[in-house]
């Protein structure tokens, strides 16, 4: 933590940490504690009177079918995004790892969607799947599918999953490729000498050896799907049709800024904070163990 050789105590270290500590207090700790405080309040629609109600907001959420439905949808959405983008990235990285020449070129061509903002990713996909103009509904019509994500809830869900997973492939690919390239070649060569073919080597050696990366990416992808996909939902479906794509982050925003239910929105924020803290702890415990092969 601390250097063996260090500077003597003075006023200077306080001045050095001051900017970050002040910003943290004003923009992180204070708002977060406000959110916790507000989650215990119920305010009437005009903001005239507030009442301290302890856990009533939470109790209401626990019995609110809309909230529980949104919870379930968020988990479904996250699992789909993680599985889709991670398996695509694993396959691509597995093949890129094999290739002697051109691996860097493929990497360049595959990583840049990482730089595309989620809301832009949403805009691109909503254009491709536009029911009247888009290229995919036009193609799908030939197989008899009438694509309309404005009316059909499962179409809308599929669309946001595609857009979210598409953007995340780049990230997963980079980590898988780095993990595979750090596997000692002698290990794979030994397997090859023992007669294991490429598919066998992949499943019996490479895949188990990159499992720490898989676990790490699972957490990262879950956090991404939970929190960073607001832009996609907001641009593509606005939570609709009929709440079919209202994930938790979108609901916090919608109940707070549109519905003006401050207490309810704050209670949802607190639940989300607990979720982030849990995920961060899981991730940190992984970091401690990551050296074990």
């Amino acid at each position: 933590m601390l250097k063996r050789v260090h500077f003597p105590t003075s006023l200077l270290p306080y001045l050095l940490v001051a900017p970050q500590v002040i910003i943290t207090l004003v923009f992180f700790v204070w708002p977060a504690s406000q959110a916790v405080y507000q989650s215990f309040l119920i305010e009437d629609a005009f903001g005239i009177s507030t009442e301290f109600v302890w856990f009533e907001n939470f109790a209401y959420l626990a019995s609110d079918e809309q909230y529980l439905g949104s919870f379930g949808r968020t988990i479904f959405f996250s699992v789909c995004v993680a599985v889709l983008s991670m398996s695509a990235a694993l396959v691509l990285a597995g093949f890129a790892d094999r290739i002697v020449r051109g691996a860097t070129t493929y990497r360049t061509l595959l990583i840049w969607p990482y730089a595309v903002a989620p809301v832009l990713a949403g805009a691109l996909w909503v254009f491709m799947f536009n029911p009247t103009l888009g290229i995919f509904p036009y193609i799908l019509e030939f197989v008899g599918i009438d694509w309309n994500h404005y009316l059909n809830g499962s179409h809308a869900m599929m669309l946001v999953i595609f857009a979210a997973a598409w953007k995340q492939i780049a990230y997963n690919f980079l980590f898988y490729l780095a993990a595979m390239q750090s596997i000692p070649r002698s290990l794979i060569e030994a397997a090859a000498i023992d007669g294991a073919g490429p598919v066998r080597r992949f499943w019996d050696h490479i895949f188990p050896l990159v499992s720490p990366t898989t676990f790490f990416l699972l957490v990262i992808n879950a956090v991404y799907a939970f929190f960073d996909t607001f832009g996609i939902i907001h641009a593509v479906t606005q939570g609709g049709p009929a709440n079919a794509t209202t994930i938790l982050v979108y609901k916090v925003y919608n109940d707070g800024f549109v519905g003006l239910d401050l207490g309810g929105s704050a209670a949802q924020s607190v639940i989300l904070m607990i979720l982030v803290i849990a995920m961060t702890v899981v991730q940190f415990r992984y970091v401690e163990r990551k050296v074990e092969y």
Binding site: H6, T9, L272, T280
Partner: peptide, 28 residues
């Protein structure tokens, strides 16, 4: 590089920001 009172306190204060993305504390 410095040893000063509350050093670890400041460290943990900074650490908690990791757990509070803008999306979860938007309203306040």
């Amino acid at each position: 590089y410095f040893k000063f009172p509350f050093r670890m306190g400041f460290f943990w204060l900074i650490f908690i920001t990791l757990m509070l993305p803008v999306e979860v504390r938007i309203l306040p």
